[in-house]
Amino acid sequence: MSLSGTLANTPPIDSVGVAERVARFSTRSIKKTSKMEALKLALSMIDLTTLEGKDTEDKVRRLCYKARHLHVDLPDLPTVAAVCVYPTMVKVAREELNDCGVKVAAVATSFPSGQDDLSLRIRQTKGAVRHGAQEIDMVISRGRFLAGDYQYVTDEIVAVKEACGEAHLKVILETGELYTLENVRKASDIAIHAGADFIKTSTGKVQPAATMEVTLVMLEAIRDHFQETGKIVGMKPAGGISNSKIAIRYLVMLRETLGNRWLTPKLFRFGASSLANDLLMQIVKQSSGVYQSSNYFSID
């Protein structure tokens, strides 16, 4: 796929402006019923994630159980959007989740570094899809990107997208390794251009992970692309979003940048593990009036 034109349209990023805009989102006061709605919406947008070398099948089963039964005392809660695991765990996760509506997402393409032959990374993607992954979270080659080889990055996304078949493709930019907001915007444009269904900030293995600044730049890339071509792309900040307050700020930013249309788990996700319990504790706090303890919630 040719890149001509794509990068020419990439606007310069005013980082001071981004910081100020982000600061504004943090001042919105979301209370009572709107807060309750926001908490539930955030809950429904979570990709419940476990990506560790020490993951076992039982840990994944437990996570899947949690995805379906967030808190027994609150029967009318939504479920989370997906469970995100390594490719080896996709089978187990599919078995557990059946067709209950919670999707199985797999990180593939030599996550988290992406440092491997493209052919192997594509094979891994195909394997994950064959085992039942409905969503694939791929990483881009940051080294190539930083070296200026944008064509390579475009081609690898196109190739992985093809390997995904029916599965949704989320492209992880790993913004913590891209250094500048300009690079984040450039990488977003490339990923969207190459056919990403979602663009995602981080693997969670590199600090800084998701920040509101990079997320805003990525949301604006999505908006500009939508206005130009009408194509809708989703967004997934991941890593470091650990409590309800921050999650609600992201939702405010999403609403004020992309509008109501994006306020759905189909187009926005949080990659997180401990966020779910914090949201649950806030929801119970809202209804009972009493501050909660993690002792009364399932392990995350």
Binding site: G289, V290, Y291, Q292, S293, N295
Partner: peptide
């Protein structure tokens, strides 16, 4: 009241 109701 908040000290005494806090579940944690």
């Amino acid at each position: 009241p908040d000290f005494s109701t806090h579940m944690d």
